[in-house]
């Protein structure tokens, strides 16, 4: 009798413990993953808000043009949602495609860069003064309600985040709620920056990719400015150096092009492309003998790459023709 009683209390106690544990687990589950990493990130300012970001309330279903206009205006590119609607809005789908959002930003002269899929990356950008266009699913994965909005501020202590969203000028969300709605777009987010400004959270490789896409539509001057900023941040990055050299050449800034390709050869001695382009710059500068030496060196560096070899051979042909 006594024994069973002890037994029962023991069971009760352990049940209580189990339920407490389950409750704690539930509580834990309430904090979406990634929020703790952000709130415990000591490199971030605890609070930041870009209060001067303009606001364009969206017309029906047209959050894409509204969000894009907000981001572009924040980057000092004057454009209205109405102007953007034909570029990014698909009436048949009542929405905007992600790649079109980024392409439209480029078309209007901004460098669009996708940022890493992490909450602290969003905050890093906001702290650096860059608003972030995010894609959220405000519904569930099985009843999607896709939405574009612009993150303009956050507070790590209050665990809050503010967006220009839909018809709300300062939409407040808890970090957990934001994180969950954002996660459903696989944390899709990008910044649209004026040329010469760099994102705060993005690696050199990703910036290089963004600039390669950007330069196709950019003016020669903007292209040079954008690469110059990136090279001063990452002075030895192969693609960025190539981009700066080519942009300088396109802008007819031959001294800068020559210096850039020379530096590229120093830090990437195996890059036959750098030799090829330096030879071309030297040719344009009428340093024919030097151009020939550089192109010949490039041909030895090219190794087995047939494509590069034929490009260098062609450069050599042109240099030799110019001597006649």
């Amino acid at each position: 009798m006594h024994l069973t009683f002890i037994h029962l209390t023991l069971i009760k106690a352990s049940l209580r413990r189990v339920s407490l544990l389950a409750f704690l687990c539930l509580l834990n589950a309430c904090a979406a993953t990634g929020v703790r990493e952000a709130t415990h990130n000591m490199q971030l300012p605890r609070h930041a808000e870009l209060t001067s970001t303009p606001f364009f309330p969206q017309a029906q279903y047209q959050c894409g043009p509204a969000a894009l206009a907000t981001a572009l205006s924040a980057a000092n590119i004057q454009v209205t949602p109405d102007q953007l609607t034909p570029e990014v809005y698909m009436p048949s789908r009542q929405g905007s495609l992600q790649i079109e959002m980024m392409a439209a930003a480029r078309r209007h002269g901004a460098v669009s860069v996708k940022i890493p899929p992490q909450l602290d990356a969003v905050m890093q950008e906001v702290a650096a003064g860059n608003v972030v266009v995010v894609m959220q699913n405000l519904g569930f994965s099985w009843v999607p309600s896709w939405h574009y909005a612009v993150v303009v501020g956050y507070d790590l202590d209050k665990e809050l985040l503010w967006l220009r969203s839909g018809t709300y000028e300062r939409f407040e969300m808890s970090l957990s709620a934001f994180q969950r709605t954002w996660a459903r777009s696989e944390h899709w987010a990008f910044v649209a920056l004026p040329p010469g400004k760099l994102p705060a959270s993005v690696s050199a490789d990703e910036v290089a990719k963004a600039l390669v896409a950007y330069e196709k539509n950019a003016s020669v001057a903007a292209r040079k400015q954008a690469y110059q900023a990136a090279v001063s941040e990452w002075p030895d990055h192969q693609v960025l150096l190539m981009g700066l050299g080519n942009a300088a050449y396109a802008a007819n800034d031959l001294p800068l092009a020559a210096v850039t390709f020379q530096h590229m050869i120093e830090v990437h001695p195996a890059s036959a492309a750098a030799y090829n382009n330096l030879a071309n710059v030297l040719l344009a500068q009428k340093h024919i003998a030097q151009a020939e030496t550089v192109a010949e060196k490039g041909l030895t560096v090219a190794g087995d790459d047939e494509n590069l070899k034929s490009q260098l051979a062609q450069t050599l042909v042109e240099i030799r023709q110019s001597q006649k």
């Binding site: 390669v212 192969q238 693609v239 050449y249 382009n277 071309n280």
Partner: peptide, 8 residues
């Protein structure tokens, strides 16, 4: 003659 950035 000039090799483009994209190729690199």
């Amino acid at each position: 003659a000039m090799i483009g950035t994209e190729q690199v």
